[in-house]
Design a protein around this nucleic acid. Structure first.
Length: 427
DNA sequence: TCTGGGGTCCTAGGACCC
DNA sequence: TCTGGGGTCCTAGGACCC
């Protein structure tokens, strides 16, 4: 058996993850905050969702409500930003474009991370290649990354985690794997969340090594197939394929918390209408049609002094559509069925499901002739809004005052349209 | 006063059918 | 008291991810 030969052909998957991505994006445009503690807040300035290393050291936790750390932030002069997803999306696309120069097989896993197939690199070259990825991404986009390389996606997640923790930049997990896994807490394993951690701890499985060494049968019985796949991947057996083709979404959800509590149905209607416009625009951009629409509303789950109310209504559309007006009509009807006077609503949303390709949908003989007309209307609206800014054309029912709209008190106001026209300078 | 948003996949259980 | 047995399809809800 020729061992060396087979190992050199082994699967190699790199996970490239941007460090403190949203903070790094804000830093690109703000030299003043390079070395400072910085945090980025979620929509509505609700929670901390990105932290610089300095902010982590101060003890600011991921996902922590902003009001709980406000004092700490003030005392330590932490720089605070409301999130700017249009900006982060632009930077993300740039990062991904650079990653594609390293391998034809790239899976964009989230806004700030990607799996890359590096099986064509031999054992000795893997770590060097990882370093080259880091430096090129940094040079071409300004974004710092960490790279983990291993034989499966789950192990490359482990490697990446270690790279971040040890500030190693690149970790290639090819030796002393068991020793590393023994020090890797079970709750940090990709695919093991709160419930599974509880279950594993109860059964004396405390780290990745423990999980690697229990029987597949036992894992599958106690959890499900995904649990078993995770265990297999820790053993180095690839079970989760790289998804290279960007598949279209199957659902589309648009929802927001309100900037203040809402009690009247008119304001709920405004927000639901706005969410419909956004959701419809999203699926039109992908040439998709929706078969069903769900509207949901809820009060604050944190307000213990009031009774919690949460409800949703789903409507099957007679003909799959992406027509804003059609969707709004149904959403409004759904809303009227779940609205109960007297509650202080905190959030409302719209979910489009049963999405399918417009091309694949059969032309329905009963489709009114109107349809072509409204199709061109939607096209015109999308074009105008993309050219002159979102909401250049809206409908009156979406509301003009929008007293319920979310808070964004710390926006850096970086205009991505103008950013996109900036020249790129390679240093 | 103030606690994000948008996804995917899996399973259990009901409806329905023969 | 006893109440068939399987198969498929669909959906709601849970768990997980970033």
């Amino acid at each position: 058996m020729s061992y060396t030969k087979s190992t050199s052909k082994r699967n190699k998957i790199a996970l490239v993850d941007c460090n403190s991505f949203y903070v790094s994006c804000e830093r690109l445009f703000n030299p003043r905050i390079q070395k400072k503690a910085v945090v980025v807040l979620s929509n509505n300035d609700g929670c901390v969702i990105s932290r610089s290393t300095e902010a982590k050291i101060l003890g600011i936790k991921m996902g922590e409500p902003y009001f709980k750390v406000k004092d700490l932030v003030k005392k330590n002069k932490v720089e605070v930003f409301s999130s700017n997803y249009a900006l982060y999306g632009d930077i993300s696309r740039r990062v991904m474009r650079v990653l594609r120069t390293f391998s034809p097989k790239v899976e964009i896993y989230s806004i700030d991370e990607a799996f890359i197939d590096l099986s064509f690199i031999d054992e000795k070259g893997a770590e060097e290649y990882g370093k080259e990825i880091r430096s090129r991404v940094l040079k071409w986009t300004g974004i710092p990354t960490s790279v983990g390389i291993a034989t499966t996606k789950t192990l490359s997640k482990v490697a990446n985690h270690i790279a971040k923790k040890e500030k190693a930049g690149v970790v290639y997990l090819n030796k002393d794997i068991d020793e590393r896994l023994k020090k890797f807490a079970i709750e940090d394993v990709w695919g093991v969340g709160r419930q599974l951690s509880k279950f594993y701890y109860k059964n004396n499985i405390k780290n990745a090594y423990d999980l690697k060494n229990v029987s597949n049968y036992w894992v599958k019985k106690g959890t499900n197939v995904l649990g078993a796949k995770t265990a297999m991947e820790l053993r180095g057996v690839p079970c989760i394929d790289l998804q290279i083709d960007q598949e279209k979404r199957k659902n589309c959800c648009v929802s927001r918390s309100f900037g203040r509590k809402v009690t009247e149905i008119e304001e709920l209607e405004e927000s639901v209408t706005t969410h419909c416009l956004n959701a419809a625009e999203k699926i039109r951009a992908d040439d998709q049609l929706a078969k069903t629409i769900t509207v949901f509303v809820r009060t604050s789950p944190f307000d213990k002094s009031k009774k919690y109310y949460s409800n949703s209504k789903t409507i099957d559309l007679p003909i799959a559509t992406n027509n804003s007006l059609e969707l709004i009509k149904n959403a409004t009807k759904a809303l009227s069925e779940i609205y109960v006077k007297g509650h202080r609503y905190q959030k409302a949303g719209v979910i489009l499901t049963g999405l399918k390709d417009e091309k694949e949908s059969q032309e329905n003989l009963l489709t009114p002739l109107m349809d072509n007309k409204s199709k061109s209307l939607m096209k015109a609206i999308d074009y105008t809004n993309s050219k002159y800014g979102r909401y250049a054309i809206s409908i009156a029912h979406a509301g003009l005052s929008k007293g319920w709209k979310m808070r964004r008190e710390h926006s850096s106001k970086i205009d991505t349209a103008s950013f996109d026209s900036l020249p790129i300078i390679n240093i």
